[in-house]
Structure formats: structure tokens, C-alpha cells
Simulated scan of single mutants.
Amino acid sequence: MDVSRRYEDLLERILVKYEEKLDEHQGNECIDAFLADENAEYRITRKNIKALLAELFFGAGDSSASTTQWAMAEIINNPNILESLRVVGKKRLVQETDLPKLPYLQAVINETLRMHPVGAVFPREFQQECTIGGFYIAKGTTLVINAYGVMRDPDYWEDPNKFKPERFLASSGSSWQEERREQAMKFLPFGGGRRRCPGSNVAYIIVGTAIGVMVQCFDWKIKRGYEVNMEETSGLKLFLALAHPLECIPLSRTLNPLPTNLQITDL
């Protein structure tokens, strides 16, 4: 049995198990809607659902691991950032529910994705002919968006080659919403529009929880030298990775048991 067939069988088993426990679900979930909407104008088939699950499970896995490595490399090279991330304390481990309350951690992830996007370029195909900037574009023309170049554009990003998570923290004043709209056109780690990566929310949760726990529980040293070598893989930048493996030594930090009366508002 080939690998693709095994993956398809695995996803089918996941769907069957899900269907067997529909009564145990709390509220409606997206898979419930996909499975139940038999009269929809655009029918979502079982094959479509398995394709979506494959994108979420397998696509988010490798890309999340790569982003976590890049983030830890930047954090190790910037000890001040490491200390700024340790806001939950030593009473308990960082949890998924903490992530919305940790804006600096989110800023570190966004800055990592800006500088080291997993997908450096996005190929797209024109579905119909059009004219852009006076140039005629024929139907079927392939467009390649250089997301790596856009997210390091010095005309928009200040010090584009410097790791500065603070650029993603909310600024004060009414200009913040306008700034966010402008930023959406320049920050493209997951693509954009209808073709935006469907696993982006999953990736933020996986990467945020992993980094939060690693910086909370350990100090980090590299095996050789004083800084992590940030050289990227050479060649066509379709998928960015560290040219040299990230080899670190974790030094344990003591964590105390969680007091029964401690609430998230106390952190």
C-alpha cells in the first residue's frame, strides 16, 4: 500500500470515529456542517473533507516545526526577548488558553514568520483575462508572489533585516486600525484571500504553545559558538529552512506546583 493510500485510510478512520461520537460534541463544529449540509448548492464531498484535514494535519505539522526552530534561533540570539516572554511565571505551564493574553509571544511568532516564512513564494493562476497597470494579462497566466521580498521591503518595514517583535505590538491611538489594514497587504506568511492557508490558526496555537513552554521551562545554550548561525538554505526559496541544524542544550528551570487559588488574572 503506497503512502498516499495509507494517509487516506487514516483520514477516513478519523472521520468515522468523529461520526460515531457526534452526540458528545459541544456545539456545532466545522466538520459537523460539512457532513450534514447535503442540500448545499456547492456540495462538500467526503473527499473534499479529507483533503482539508490533510492540509491541517500534515501541512501545519512541518511548517509549524520549521517556524518553531526559526523562532527559537532568534530568541536564543536575543536573550532580552527570552526574558520578556517569561510572563506566566513558574507556577504552571503555559496553556493554549493563555495565548490570547500573551501579545508579546504573538509578536515574536509574527516577526519570525515575517523574516523566515515557510512559503517564500506563492504561485497563482489567473482565472480570467484582465488588464493591470496598463498591461494585458491572459487567462491561465501564472503569477508568482515573492512573499519573502514583500515582507523585507525597506520601503515599508523599518530595519527589515532586524528581528524586532515590537513592530507587531498594538500602538496607541486611532491610527492602529488603519495601520493593521496596511500591514495586511505586506504581511503574507499564509498567503491571502480565498487561497489563504486554512491551517494558520492551528499553526499559531502549536507554535505559540511550544515556544511558551520551552522558554518557560528551560534556559538555552548552543553547542558551538555564541550565536545561532541564521544562514538559510541556498537555492530557490520555495521553502525556507536553517542551513545548519539548530543544536541546543536545554538547562532546566525549576517550576513550582500550581496553587489551588491561582487564577489567570493573578499572572
Rank of each mutant, 00 (worst) to 15 (best):
D2W: 11
S4W: 08
R6H: 09
Y7V: 13
Y7P: 01
D9V: 13
D9I: 13
D9W: 12
D9E: 14
E12I: 05
R13Q: 09
K17M: 05
L22M: 12
Q26H: 07
G27F: 05
N28G: 09
I31C: 06
D32V: 05
D32Q: 08
D32F: 04
F34I: 08
L35Q: 05
A36S: 11
E38Q: 15
E38C: 09
N39Y: 07
E41V: 08
Y42A: 14
R46P: 04
R46E: 10
K47E: 13
I49C: 02
K50T: 00
K50V: 00
G59L: 01
A60I: 04
D62M: 08
S64C: 01
S64V: 00
T67P: 00
M72V: 04
I75W: 00
I76D: 03
I76Y: 08
N77A: 05
N78T: 09
S84G: 07
L85Q: 01
R86Q: 12
V87F: 07
K90V: 09
L93R: 12
K101R: 15
P103N: 05
Y104E: 03
L105T: 03
L105R: 00
N110P: 06
E111R: 04
L113F: 02
R114V: 00
M115V: 06
H116N: 11
P117N: 12
F122V: 05
F122S: 05
P123C: 04
R124S: 04
Q127M: 15
E129A: 13
C130M: 08
G134K: 04
F135S: 11
A138V: 06
L143A: 12
V144P: 02
V144K: 00
Y148S: 02
M151S: 03
D153G: 06
D153W: 08
D155W: 08
Y156F: 06
W157C: 01
P160H: 07
N161L: 14
K162A: 11
F163T: 01
F168L: 06
L169C: 08
L169E: 08
A170I: 10
S172N: 13
S174V: 14
S175F: 11
E178P: 10
E178I: 12
R181V: 12
Q183L: 15
Q183V: 02
M185I: 08
L188A: 02
L188Q: 03
P189I: 03
F190C: 01
F190M: 02
G192I: 05
G193L: 04
R196Y: 03
N201D: 13
Y204L: 03
I205G: 00
V207T: 13
I211P: 03
V213K: 15
M214L: 15
V215T: 07
V215E: 02
C217E: 07
F218M: 04
D219G: 10
D219R: 09
W220K: 02
R224L: 07
G225R: 11
V228P: 01
V228R: 03
S234E: 12
L240Y: 01
A241E: 15
P245L: 02
P245R: 06
E247T: 12
E247C: 13
E247S: 10
E247H: 14
P250H: 03
S252C: 13
S252Y: 10
S252T: 13
S252M: 12
R253N: 09
R253D: 04
L262R: 09
T265S: 14
T265L: 11
